[in-house]
Design a protein around this nucleic acid. Structure first.
Ligand SMILES: [Mn+2]
Ligand SMILES: [Mn+2]
Ligand SMILES: [Zn+2]
Ligand SMILES: [Zn+2]
Lengths: 142, 142
DNA sequence: GTTGTATATGCAACACAGTTGCGATTCCGT
DNA sequence: ACGGAATCGCAACTGTGTTGCATATACAAC
């Protein structure tokens, strides 16, 4: 409860900082993301909200907005589902691990995408390097 | 025509090599993939086949089968679209570049995923490392 | 060649992530 | 309070990929 209260306050601060409107959906979604270490899918967040349910489309739009504002980052897994995280700053550049069985994504904070030496075809303008290791997570290893 | 004939013969050889049935859909799809350097989506292949149209589901199943047999590789991009390639052997390990605007994928043959030093959380078993650079391709740069 | 059968195809219906348009609501500066 | 732009909620839609099942066919045995 204290933890959740803190996440709510933090979420409100961050949203206030953008200068845009502070709305219940934005606060709730960002607080949910701040309150966990996990990388959450749209569906994960829907489930977490439970009672405070909000429209599917609104959730998609809030997530897009959080990414635009730099308050969250978006990760593409091999299951072709977007996942979102609000923790840390270096997330744009570090690698991720995705479990082939349960789909869970972990952040590999020590694995920097910047350490990869780029040599691109002529004319290509790189924007971002994504580094994803797939395999089995500790819980799914038999 | 000579080029296409060669791709057809090569496709037939490879399919015969699996010991499974040789069917028109398999030959046509594999030949289409062997006849290009590009990394093709389901839709790309449908368009290429044109007259020799075949059922959507059959195409999905042929692609799955080609991957199972090791005759093609499947690449996950940032959009929710699988892309396939029959060329080379190193697709599992080298990096790829995907254009944020047109979705095209290029192979970065010189960028090896093996060069990335892994340091995973305890218990995680890595199977594959994916390295994708996103940005704008030469044709989409304004 | 004919036949039998496991295998592959084609169709219809479905699942699921994500998007678009638009009218109704609400945040917030005045 | 008030007004208007920003945001929300709903419905309908798109696109990719999957499942179930009846039909067709590759190919091995004869
Ligand atoms: Mn991360
Ligand atoms: Mn490749
Ligand atoms: Zn797992
Ligand atoms: Zn492009």
């Amino acid at each position: 409860m204290t933890m959740q209260g803190h996440a709510l306050d933090l979420a409100r601060d961050k949203i206030r900082g953008t200068g845009a409107r502070m709305t219940a959906p934005r606060v709730q979604v960002l607080a949910a993301m701040l309150g966990t270490q996990r990388v959450l899918s749209h569906r994960d967040i829907e489930d977490m909200l439970g009672a405070a349910r909000l429209d599917r489309v609104t959730l998609y739009r809030v997530l897009d907005w959080l990414v635009e504002q730099g308050l969250a980052h978006r990760i593409a897994g091999r299951d072709r589902v977007w996942r979102f995280s609000a923790t840390g700053e270096a997330h744009e550049t570090h690698g991720h691990f995705q479990c082939n069985r349960c789909g869970k994504i972990l952040c590999l904070d020590e694995l920097s995408a910047h350490s990869v030496p780029l040599r691109l075809p002529a004319g290509c303008r790189p924007e971002r390097t994504e580094l994803t290791v797939t395999g089995l997570c500790a819980e799914c290893t038999v």
